[in-house]
Each structure stands twice: as structure tokens, then as C-alpha cells.
């Protein structure tokens, strides 16, 4: 469903991705690990369409209605509507818009994109309350400004709640484990595990092996200096934990 071929991308004038190739099929969970500055977050932002991240060569293709299309041709909101979801490393605070109104607007935008009827506010509130259970989130958070005054853990739970509501086909989780204590990590990982399905591809981006104790990946890739230097199964993460990144850094 996602095919990245020899992807080169710049952030400003600097080339950060230097030929990444990766394929994710429905139902698979991939983890990309790598040291700081290796290009992990850049990769996630390029897929989601963050402005200013320029693809200089190579391709990111995504399956839409049975056909592989070039993602760079779609605006970020169209990518989201087609089922690409990015859980942010640093979720943005949006004062003045309640979490519920935000989720409702997003949900209805996706409905409109697919020509499906929008959901009424009342019905949606019930739908979200049900989804909140996946990340054990107090429904009162729905009436607060998006991420405003949320703790680090609450923000990450909120990201997974958004994922549950929007039900994407491809979910990219950018350092979802960062800044979480062990209890919060268990809740967030538990939420992600509940959202694993045969139709959904998941790309975990992480610095540490710790997250992978809770979300077991099918494939692990090591990203270094903008390239995938090694791929393997979940045992690669354990190896990495033992040997450190130095053994793989180019």
C-alpha cells in the first residue's frame, strides 16, 4: 500500500533523505529506528506532506482505489482523506477549538471527500466517547482546547484517539513513545495494538527499543544518514539495543 523508492528529500538546502526504499503492505507493522538526525522525522513529514520538505528525486506511492498514485501530487489534506495519518511527535496546541469540534471537523472532512454523509454533532459525540475508551481518555478532555494544557502523555493519547476516529489505512507514529512514562506508554501502545488490523499498515518511528516491547513489529529498519542501512525482523531491535547504533552508522 505504501511504496517508497530511492527517496531523496531536502529540508531547506540540506539533503536529509538520501535514497530511502521501503514497502509497507496492509496489516504490516514496520519500525524505523535510528539515531538523532538520521532522517526519521523527515521521512514521516515527507509522507504526510509537510510544507518545505522537498522531494528532489525518487517517489512515494500510495494505493488509492487499487491504483498506486504519487503522493506528492496530493495536498496534505487529500492524503489524510485518502487514509494517511501522522501521529505527531509534538502535537500542536490549538486554543479556542475544542477537541470534539476539531475531531468532528476532521471526520466530516473525510466523509465529504468520499461522498459519504456527514455525522451529526450528537451522533459524533457518542461515537467519540466510545473511541476514547481505546486510550482510556476521560471524555472531559473532549471539551477542552485541542492539546491545550495537556500533559505529554495526554497529548500522545489524543493523537491515538484521532487515529481511532479517522481510521486511516496507513498510520505513521512519529516518536509516539517520547516523553512518556511507563504507564502512559502502556496505554498508548495498548491503543495502537487495538487498532492493528489486516487492512492497516503501521509505521513506527522511534529512537528506543522500549516501544517495541509493547508494539511488536513485523519488520525493523535502521535508518542512518538518510538511508536504510539494515532491515530485519523484530530481533534486529534487540540486537540494536545490545550493540548500539554505532555498529550501524555510516
Amino acid at each position: 500500500m505504501l511504496k517508497i523508492t530511492n527517496l531523496h528529500a531536502n529540508v531547506g538546502d540540506k539533503e536529509v533523505l538520501k535514497g530511502v526504499t521501503l514497502t509497507i503492505n496492509p496489516g504490516e507493522v514496520h519500525a524505523i529506528m535510528g539515531p538523532n538526525g538520521s532522517g526519521k522525522s523527515t521521512l514521516s513529514k515527507v509522507i504526510a506532506g509537510y510544507p518545505g520538505y522537498e522531494i528532489t528525486s525518487g517517489k512515494v506511492e500510495f494505493e488509492v482505489n487499487g491504483k498506486m498514485i504519487d503522493l506528492s501530487e496530493l495536498e496534505p489534506e487529500a492524503r489524510a482523506c485518502e487514509g494517511v495519518f501522522l501521529a505527531f511527535q509534538y502535537p500542536v496546541e490549538v486554543p479556542g477549538i475544542t477537541n470534539l469540534a476539531f475531531l468532528h471537523a476532521a471526520f466530516n472532512a473525510v466523509c465529504r471527500h468520499h461522498g459519504a454523509p456527514e455525522m451529526s454533532e450528537e451522533k459524533f459525540a457518542k461515537f467519540v466517547a466510545e473511541k476514547s475508551k481505546i486510550v482510556e481518555m476521560d471524555p472531559r478532555f473532549l471539551d477542552r482546547g485541542v492539546n491545550v494544557g495537556f500533559s505529554g502523555g495526554e497529548k500522545k493519547r489524543n493523537e491515538i484517539l484521532q487515529m481511532a476516529v479517522l481510521s486511516p489505512r496507513l498510520a505513521i507514529l512519529d516518536e509516539t513513545d517520547s516523553g512518556l512514562d511507563i504507564d502512559a506508554l502502556k496505554i498508548v501502545a495498548g491503543g495502537v495494538n487495538k487498532l492493528r488490523s489486516a487492512e492497516r499498515g503501521i509505521l513506527l518511528i522511534t529512537h528506543y527499543q522500549r516501544l517495541l516491547d509493547f508494539i511488536k513489529p513485523d519488520f525493523v529498519h535502521i535508518l542512518s544518514a538518510g538511508q536504510i542501512v539494515k532491515s530485519g525482523n523484530s530481533s534486529l531491535a534487540l540486537e540494536l539495543e545490545k550493540e548500539g547504533y554505532n555498529a550501524y552508522i555510516r
Binding site: A48, G49, Y50, P51, E75, P76, E77, R79, A80, C81, F85, L86, F88, P91, V92, V94, P95, G96, I97, F102, A105, A106, A109, V110, H113, G145, Q162, L166
Partner: peptide
């Protein structure tokens, strides 16, 4: 802020409208 809303499927114009109104509603 704009990208955060866009990444959830909300178009650019609607995102700006929501963020602007949100600024006041805060």
C-alpha cells in the same frame, strides 16, 4: 498549526477559518 489541521483532512481554507475563529473563541 495549519499543517496539523490539514494532516487531519481539513482543507487549508477551512483550517484558517477554524484557527481564526479559535483565536477569538479562546
Amino acid at each position: 498549526e495549519i499543517f496539523y489541521l490539514e494532516s487531519r483532512g481539513i482543507g487549508r481554507d477551512e483550517a484558517k477559518l477554524m484557527l481564526g475563529r479559535g483565536y477569538i473563541l479562546d
